[in-house]
C-alpha cells in the first residue's frame, strides 16, 4: 500500500495578517512558513500506520504545489519521516488549479490512500482533497477523525453534525482529515533532519490547466469597540447588559 499526503505551505498560525499592493496580496514579509496543521496530522498518522503495518505500507509520499520557496516545508515533511516528496513547480492559483496539478501528477503512480487536510489555514478553501477525488473518479471520505488499516481494509471514523460514523471504503480513495486522526503532530528528530537531505524530492513541471476563481482584494475585520468591564461582584449587572444592551439574552 502506498500513501500520499497533500501538503499546503501556509503561514505560521501566529502570523499577524497584513496585505500589500492596495490590499491585493498577502504580505509575506517576515512570515514563517509551516506545514498546514491538518496536513501535519495526516502525515503523522500515515507514518504511524506505516510503522504498524509490518511492511504492508511500503511508502508515504508528500506532494505540494508551489515554487522553490515551498521546498523547506517539503524537507520538513521528509524530516518528520515521509519517504519522498514531489513538488509541482507552479504558484498555486486556486483550489481547482492545485487539485488538477496533483491529480495529473499522481494518476499513474498507484497511490492507494491520498490524504488531504480539511482546509488550509490561509485561504480556507476546503476543496483540494474532494476535487482530486472527483478528478480521479475515486471515492472520498471527508471530516475523518480516525484512520485504521485492518488487513487490506481501511476503516474510517467520520464526524457528522452531532455524532460520528464508521465507514469502510474501496481503494484507492481520498481521506479528508480533521482534528483527531493523530494526537500531536510529530516533530522531526535530529536524525530525521539529517536523513531528509538525502531523500528524493522530485520537481515536476505543471500541466496546462485553468483556475476558476481569483482573489480581487483582502480586508481586515473592523476594529472592535473597547471591552466594557463589569465588576466581578456584580454579575446581575452583566446579565442586565446582555439583556438590554447586547440583546443576546
Amino acid at each position: 500500500m502506498k500513501i500520499l499526503i497533500c501538503i499546503s505551505n501556509v503561514p505560521d498560525t501566529t502570523t499577524k495578517i497584513r496585505f500589500v499592493n492596495d490590499n491585493k496580496a498577502f504580505d509575506t514579509n517576515g512570515v514563517q512558513w509551516i506545514i498546514n496543521p491538518w496536513d501535519e496530522l495526516a502525515l503523522t498518522r500515515a507514518l504511524e500506520l506505516k510503522e504498524g503495518s509490518g511492511g504492508k505500507i511500503e511508502k508515504v509520499s508528500v506532494i505540494s504545489v508551489g515554487s522553490h520557496g515551498a521546498e523547506p516545508t517539503l524537507r520538513k515533511a521528509l524530516a518528520i519521516g515521509a519517504d519522498d516528496a514531489i513538488r509541482i513547480n507552479a504558484e498555486p492559483k486556486d483550489a481547482y488549479f492545485v487539485a488538477s496539478q496533483i491529480a495529473a501528477a499522481i494518476k499513474d503512480e498507484g497511490y492507494d490512500m491520498i490524504i488531504a487536510g480539511i482546509e488550509s489555514s490561509d485561504y480556507n478553501g476546503s476543496a483540494v482533497g474532494g476535487m482530486i477525488a472527483e478528478l480521479l473518479s475515486i471515492p472520498n471520505v471527508s471530516s475523518v477523525s480516525k484512520i485504521d488499516v485492518e488487513g487490506d481494509n481501511v476503516v474510517l471514523k467520520r464526524e457528522i453534525d452531532g455524532g460520528s460514523e464508521v465507514l469502510a471504503t474501496q481503494l484507492p480513495f481520498v481521506a479528508i482529515i480533521q482534528k483527531g486522526v493523530a494526537l500531536e503532530p510529530r516533530i522531526p528528530s535530529m536524525r530525521g533532519i539529517m536523513m531528509a537531505r538525502q531523500k528524493p524530492l522530485k520537481v515536476v513541471e505543471p500541466v496546462e490547466t485553468e483556475s476558476l476563481t481569483e482573489f480581487v482584494d483582502f480586508s481586515l475585520p473592523p476594529a472592535k469597540a473597547a471591552c466594557k468591564m463589569v465588576d466581578p461582584e456584580n454579575m446581575k449587572e452583566l446579565v442586565n447588559l446582555l439583556h438590554t444592551e447586547a440583546k443576546v439574552l
Binding site: 503561514p11 498560525t13 495578517i17 496585505f19 489555514s121 490561509d122 485561504y123 480556507n124 483556475s211 476558476l212 476563481t213 481569483e214 482573489f215 480581487v216 482584494d217 483582502f218 480586508s219 481586515l220 475585520p221
Partner: peptide, 15 residues
C-alpha cells in the same frame, strides 16, 4: 473569510 477569520477576501468567479 480567509486566514481563519483573521481577514476577508473578495473572490471573483470566472467560470
Amino acid at each position: 473569510k480567509t486566514f481563519t477569520g483573521k481577514a476577508f477576501a473578495n473572490v471573483k468567479i470566472n467560470s
